[in-house]
């Protein structure tokens, strides 16, 4: 087995690399390749930026969303009234 992965292999391992999910020797070989290859450095940087951008989009969405929690709780209450509780009593 060769020591240093190819560019193609780098793109296959990039996601696991960023998730810190490569075994130590693979991680070391990955980093060795990055030292030598500007294009793979760029690719990995872009993948990292893609991931943080998705996080940013989600944070914006989460802040915007206000699902009607009370409405869901009401629905659950109705359902609970028709379902026997485990202790056989209503503790509301």
């Amino acid at each position: 087995m060769k020591m240093i992965p190819s560019c193609r292999e780098i793109t296959e391992q990039a996601s696991d690399y960023l998730d810190q999910n490569l075994p130590p020797w693979k991680r070391a070989a990955f980093r060795m390749h990055l030292l030598m290859c500007i294009y793979c450095r760029r690719h990995v940087k872009h993948l990292g930026l893609t991931i943080s951008t998705l996080g940013k989009i989600a944070a914006e969405e989460n802040a915007r969303e206000n699902s009607d929690i009370q409405q869901i709780v009401e629905l659950i209450k109705q359902e609970l009234e028709e379902t026997p509780g485990q202790k056989g009593e209503d503790c509301r």
């Binding site: 989460n62 869901i72 709780v73 659950i76 485990q86 202790k87 209503d90």
Partner: peptide, 18 residues
Amino acid sequence: LLAHDEAAYTQVVSAYHG
């Protein structure tokens, strides 16, 4: 939740519904 505690359901819904 098993005892149908409404406050517990409200907490779980608030935490996980989104």
